[in-house]
Amino acid sequence: AEDTGLRVELAEEDDCSNSSLALRLWVEDPKKLKGKNKDNEAIEFSFNLETDTPEEVAYEMVKSGFFHESDSKAVAKSIRDRVTVIKKTREKIPAGC
């Protein structure tokens, strides 16, 4: 996966039972982003695997002032990559984590 300069991780342990995830995103390499942002702050948010989309969350972050609009795609991609990994992990593990 292309390095966006952003890091997204689970903010809480995934118990695999909930469709809602707690994720945390922060800037790892500010040089890879086009806009100005704070690289010492992490943003924690919930992401519902069934109803939310990475683009929607990225848009909300841009509108909330965390990122510049030009970085919206990078933010969405970072979230999507992490969510994809989490979904694949859940598929591999039998019921219950």
Binding site: R7, W26, E28, D29, D39, N40, E41, A42, I43, E44, F45, S46, V57, E60, M61, K63, S64, G65, F66
Partner: peptide, 27 residues
């Protein structure tokens, strides 16, 4: 560490906190 809460108009809550030093070093 200080926490700041930002609520988007769509209702999603963003909680801002400092990135722990250890995570910055890892990356």
């Amino acid at each position: 560490s200080s926490l700041t809460q930002v609520v988007h108009s769509a209702g999603r809550r963003f909680i801002v906190s400092p990135v722990p030093e250890s995570r910055l070093q890892e990356s």
